[in-house]
Design a protein around this nucleic acid. Structure first.
Length: 887
RNA sequence: GCCGGAGUGGCGAAAUUGGUAUACGCACGAGACUCAAAAUCUCGCGAGCGCAAGCUCAUGUCGGUUCAAGUCCGACCUCCGGUACCA
């Protein structure tokens, strides 16, 4: 142990040692409890950013803690290495996606190793390797066999100029991101997974994870699945042998249906298309739907035209007009609705616009339903409604159903419809099937062959993987690069051995990330996606950590995938992740000047700016170091290139060491909050580490002759006794905080313990052997407890204290608190008079209530406040406070 | 609009779940060491009044419950995240 703290030296030394000893390499062991700690796998963009650093620091802190508690901890790492950016790089720089991706991985792996995260690197996986995507294909085939995968026509964004498919992102605003051409919709045959089959299970099983997942994530998923209970009702079309089926959640309002609205894609329109106005409208809506034209917040105006058709309300026998409108979606419900303007906001808006009748059929129910003033069966229709009344209530103007409550009417009317054969109650979901086809090169090829004789033929298992070709032409225009590789496309039919073509679409990358953490359990398996026994030992994941931006898609897909795997017999549980932690963004200050063009801004990196403050430390202004001229201080924003406020983790590690970077990223804010990156803050983290280090250094040879067992309390000085108490209190707090992942307060507690030791006045030179014991206990506990946050420094200090063998793989355990020692000997009990703090009295924790009360009442300061007043009540909360109520 | 979450010193944040509001850190101020600076160390640091002891006011706003409210209830304001015509 050197006298000074040299992080780069220490970190290199321990990273090397951990690698040599395989410190973090684990295997299933039935004799030990396991803990599976998982961080979301990153896309290998080329550089690690601070969000990654934070994510892995969090996971590593927990992994270390669990190891020190004796768990067999699986902490693996891998790469989500398929995806668009590699293809963009190929187009721009003429480098093959694989080379680009693997170079990025190489670089980022180096960065990660310098951070010293405790991964079992033998288990590293990458989605783009045939060893991995072979099993994506295998899963595809299993789902295909079970009918869980099907093909259907589905629209994609199409750039007519470049003749290529665009993602929603690439066609935002309805124009191609590269060439600016107007984006078209084009129907393609695509592959879908029947996630909707699992909608109800995805909803129901949430109760298994309610305890461990953030409420907001579950809420978002619930809304995304969007279950609604209602009914289908068939409306007969007048003068035709056809019916229009509508879906409604409010069948109780059916007597208020004054028209029917169908989607622009509804088949019934074939009857009406002869009408020129209808055809024109449909065409116009279709054109406006192209691309991801709609931005959040901008609602399309509700528009429609009368089709000239009439529909018969099966309840009332009434004949109502059929309209076609842009606000009815073909893919939800039945693609048609009955419009009840009096009781639905959208229908109301539409009816107002086109002067369609509004008929009220629900009245508000007062709590004393009997006391409704007017006769509920007939309501004055001339009363103008300012907006729709959408609450439940009591039915009026509804023939025999009038007077019923909405809740009852819904049930009974649906049953009635069913008995008469014109409807039935139904549950629908917003959740749609998962489209997994991508017209891209850099993804897992879909293992299907098209044969003129045999049709769609799945590739047999023994021919997997269907390998991506090494080379292709990347022009960014024309057909997908994969479709241009003849030796890939042209193949033989597995069934008839005749000439056939391969599917050239690849799979959505969410497929890769849906099951990767199962593969970690058995990453090299060549005969299956994994060994069931190994997965049974390690999974489900005990703690998953990642960004909240994956709250819905990834986390829903992976939940679905697990249920699918359960159904094909690979796992025995419903939910893959027991506890989920969603971390906040890493943000930094922005500095800018107005640019040449009006409204444009030129951003400056925080490293190039000097910040000026007033006496109180408030920021007053900032100047650019280069020219000394002022710059505007902007908001804290997510680190990004566009705001030039990014901080390079490598530079930080070089300047402060990985341990300080990690401590800061855990200390500065709770994990769920956004983290404000401030260089001054990381100074503080380094300062703390230096203080711990130098304290350990000073004491390192001071414990050779000290007994390992506890010494008698009486022999301790007051300061040492206080230190022991603080030590045990800290152990309790830190263990609790680590369990809850409250790392910021855990680190604060460690800082307090160090402060207690340095303030105690106990030094290595003049110190009784009893006191020496107390210091050893404090320091050794501190060093072990700091390991989850600053593992390199902890190892070095542990060794410095004379322990061989290191903290990992040895019998070193997280310290155990002695509850008796953690108890305070003397408490300062606050005394309030009428709820206001007036004095404090000292008392031991087990002072009886009566005594506390007496002590409080006889306190001089208290006396001054209660003198001459009547004592109404004295509240004594043992160990807490005394409150005297006077009049 | 709807659904979630949050508002506490100059700043990041604590507060054992109703019991001493502001732990810990950052920033800032004063001092020690130094030729000097850095580093380090010591002290101070919510606001107001006061020589002081101390008093009063402070957890987004207003009201309520309670001996006692940052914490519970009601209404509102602001900010952040998600989402979008789901019938």
């Amino acid at each position: 142990m050197d006298e000074k703290y040299f992080p780069e030296k220490i970190e290199e030394k321990w990273q090397k040692r951990w690698a040599e000893t395989g410190a973090f390499e684990v295997e299933p062991d039935d004799s030990r409890a396991k803990f599976y700690c998982l961080e979301m796998l990153p896309y290998p963009s080329g550089y690690l950013h601070m969000g990654h650093v934070r994510n892995y620091s969090v996971g590593d802190a927990l992994s270390w803690f669990k190891r020190l508690q004796g768990f067999n901890v699986l902490h693996p790492f891998g790469w989500d290495s398929f995806g668009q950016p590699a293809e963009q790089a190929a187009i721009k720089r003429n480098v093959m996606p694989r080379e680009w991706t693997e170079a990025n991985i190489e670089h980022m792996r180096g960065q990660l190793k310098r951070l010293g995260i405790s991964y079992d690197w033998r288990r590293e996986i990458a989605a783009h390797t045939p060893e991995y995507y072979k099993w994506d294909q295998w899963f595809f085939l299993r789902m295909f066999e079970r009918g869980l995968i099907y093909r259907k026509n589905s629209p994609v964004n199409w750039c007519p100029k470049e003749e290529t498919v665009l993602s929603n992102e690439q066609s935002s605003g309805g124009v191609c991101w590269r060439c600016g051409a107007s984006v078209l919709k084009r129907d393609l045959e695509q592959w879908f997974v029947r996630t909707s089959d699992y909608a109800q299970q995805l909803l129901d099983d949430m109760k298994e994870i309610e305890q461990g997942w953030p409420e907001r994530v579950l809420t978002m998923q619930r809304n995304w699945i969007g279950r609604s209970e209602g009914a289908f009702v068939d409306f007969q079309i007048k003068d035709a042998d056809e019916r229009v089926r509508i879906f409604t959640t409010r069948i109780d309002t059916i007597y208020g249906a004054t028209f029917v609205v169908v989607s622009t894609e509804h088949p019934i329109l074939e009857k009406a298309l002869l009408k020129e106005e209808v055809a024109r409208f449909v065409e116009r809506v279709r054109a406006s739907r192209v691309g991801a034209a709609k931005q959040p917040g901008e609602d399309e105006e509700k528009e429609g035209v009368n089709t000239g058709l009439f529909a018969l309300n099966p309840f009332s026998g009434e004949q109502v007009p059929v309209w076609v409108a842009n606000y009815v979606l073909m893919e939800y419900g039945a693609g048609a609705v009955m419009a009840v303007p009096a009781h639905d906001e959208r229908d109301f808006e539409f009816a107002q616009r086109y002067s369609l009748p509004i008929r009220r059929v629900i009245e508000r129910v007062s709590h004393e339903q009997e006391q409704i003033a007017h006769d509920p069966v007939s309501v004055d229709q001339s009363a103008v409604m300012p907006h729709a009344f959408t609450d439940y209530g009591i039915l009026v103007n509804s023939s025999d159903w009038s007077g019923k409550l909405s809740e009852d009417a819904k049930r009974e009317m649906a049953a009635f419809a069913k008995s008469k054969g014109f409807g039935e109650s139904a549950v629908t979901y917003r959740l749609r099937d998962w489209g997994i086809s991508r017209q891209r090169f850099w993804g897992a090829p879909i293992p299907v062959v098209y044969c003129d004789k045999c049709g769609v033929v799945p590739v047999p298992d023994d021919q997997l993987p269907v390998r991506l070709p090494e080379r292709a032409e990347f022009t960014g225009t024309g057909q997908s690069p994969l479709a241009g590789v003849a030796e890939f496309v042209n193949t033989t039919c597995p069934k008839c051995e005749g000439a056939a073509r391969r599917e050239t679409d690849t799979m959505d990358t969410f497929v890769d990330s849906s099951w990767y953490f199962f593969r970690y359990c058995d990453p090299k398996n060549e005969s299956g996606p994994f060994d069931k026994a190994k997965v049974a030992y390690w999974t489900p994941v005990d703690q998953y950590i990642g960004g909240v931006e994956h709250a819905v898609m990834h986390l829903l897909y992976t939940r679905f995938w697990t249920k699918m795997m359960r159904d094909i017999g690979l796992v025995k549980f419903n939910e893959p992740v027991k506890r989920l932690m969603t971390q906040g963004m890493v943000v930094a200050e922005t500095f800018y000047r107005e640019g040449e063009d009006a409204g444009s801004k030129v951003y400056y990196n925080p490293a190039d700016v000097d910040v000026l403050r007033d006496d109180k430390g408030r920021v007053t202004s900032a100047t650019l170091i280069n020219d000394g001229q002022p710059v505007t201080v902007g908001a804290f924003e997510k680190m990004s290139k566009s705001t030039n406020n990014g901080v390079d983790p490598d530079e930080m590690i070089r300047a402060y060491g990985a341990d300080a970077v990690r401590i800061f990223s855990l200390f500065a804010a709770p994990v769920e909050n956004d983290l404000r990156w401030q260089e001054a803050g990381i100074d503080g983290a380094l300062r703390f580490l230096r203080r711990v280090y130098s304290t350990v250094y000073r004491w390192r040879r001071g414990f050779t002759d000290v007994a390992r067992e506890a010494t008698a309390i009486e022999e301790l000085s007051d300061a040492a006794r206080a230190l022991r108490r603080k030590t045990h209190q800290t152990i309790l707090r830190v263990a609790e905080d680590l369990q809850q992942m409250h790392f910021n307060t855990a680190i604060a507690a460690l800082m307090e313990l160090l402060n207690e030791l340095s303030d105690s006045g106990i030094g290595p030179d003049k110190c009784s052997s009893a006191d020496r014991f107390a210091v050893r206990e404090a320091l050794e506990s501190l060093v072990v407890m700091i390991a989850p946050f600053a593992p390199h420094a902890a190892e070095e200090m542990w060794e410095g204290l004379g322990h061989a063998g290191g903290l990992i793989g040895s019998s070193v355990r997280f310290p155990q608190a002695d509850l008796d020692l953690a108890k305070k000997e003397l408490l300062e009990i606050p005394v309030q008079v009428n709820g206001k703090l007036r004095a404090r009295v000292s008392a031991s924790p087990d002072t009886p209530e009566e005594e506390l009360r007496a002590a409080a009442l006889s306190d001089e300061k208290v006396k001054a406040f209660i003198e001459g007043r009547e004592i109404v009540k004295v509240i004594v909360v043992p160990r807490r406070l005394v409150n005297i109520v006077v009049r």
